[in-house]
Design a binder for these strands. Structure first.
Lengths: 145, 145
DNA sequence: CTGCGATATGTTCGATGAGACATATCGCCA
DNA sequence: TGGCGATATGTCTCATCGAACATATCGCAG
């Protein structure tokens, strides 16, 4: 348990659509899948962390969630799509591991693209709404566990 | 209690971002407010219904939720913004009523605009993801109560 | 001044979901 | 062959949420 903090996080790890880098965290994109489950920043970040760490457990630690929860999110995702997004293996020298399948990578890339374009698309209205809010303060960044 | 189904619903009453008119209901836009509460299709539709019916109770009936729930959603919204989005009055010949404030209308219009532009922005990826889903079927339209 | 209809608010109960533990299993490697 | 580390799963509890029920209040109309 030492390869947790992978170095090269290519793109932003958070699922916010703020229109700006900082700020009170406005706007989340969530895709509702037919199965009833949904794909939001939480699952997307988890997928990314799995791809980087090669382990569900390490990804769960990074996201500060229990292994159980991380695993059940992965189970949901795998069930929602025709092909699994995460391939896992038990045993072995490292004890086991997990990795993104090609489908998993496609889904993650697609989500990031949607996140980016949606962010750009709603930036103007986000700015307008921000001016109408009650708490002007900044207490937040509860990064969707 | 008969003015429920108002006639002139200017724009789409649902909060989906499908990219197409029909289909399995992909994509929801949700704005996370600082207060912890969020503004999604449910509250947006409720706001619209209040504006059309002039009553929290009637809007609640249309959305198939209890008055208590509708009222508490309104309370959340009013608390989240500096000025209330819904102004209500008790008593009177009609028993009372509620209406959108100018701020309320601004917020609703802004949400609809975000919804529309986000829908357009993510259409391509939505189509791609749809091809990867497990259930190709169409059982859904649980319009976010 | 009494009744009506809608707002405003509290309480209670069942379902749902997350968190905390507790194991079981697997495949390498010393 | 026994230990290690990670996956895979079950169970229990507790907080939270919503549905349902119960009132209380208000202002006008009759």
């Amino acid at each position: 348990m030492q390869a947790d903090e992978a170095p090269g996080a290519a793109f932003a790890r958070d699922g916010r659509l703020t229109g700006e880098r900082h700020g009170p965290a406005l706007g989340h994109l969530r895709i509702r899948l037919d199965s009833g489950t949904s794909l939001g920043p939480g699952k997307a970040n988890l997928l990314e962390a799995i791809g980087e760490t090669g382990s569900i457990a390490a990804a769960g630690r990074r996201m500060k969630m229990s292994y159980k929860r991380a695993w059940s999110l992965v189970e949901d995702l795998n069930a929602a799509f025709r092909e699994p997004l995460v391939a896992s293996s038990r045993g072995g020298s490292a004890g086991g591991g997990a990795a993104l399948t090609p489908t998993g990578e496609r889904v993650l890339v697609a989500y990031r693209a949607m996140q980016a374009s949606a962010e750009a698309a709603i930036a103007a209205e986000v700015a307008e709404l921000r001016g109408l809010l009650a708490e002007p303060g900044f207490g937040d960044m509860s990064d969707e566990k």
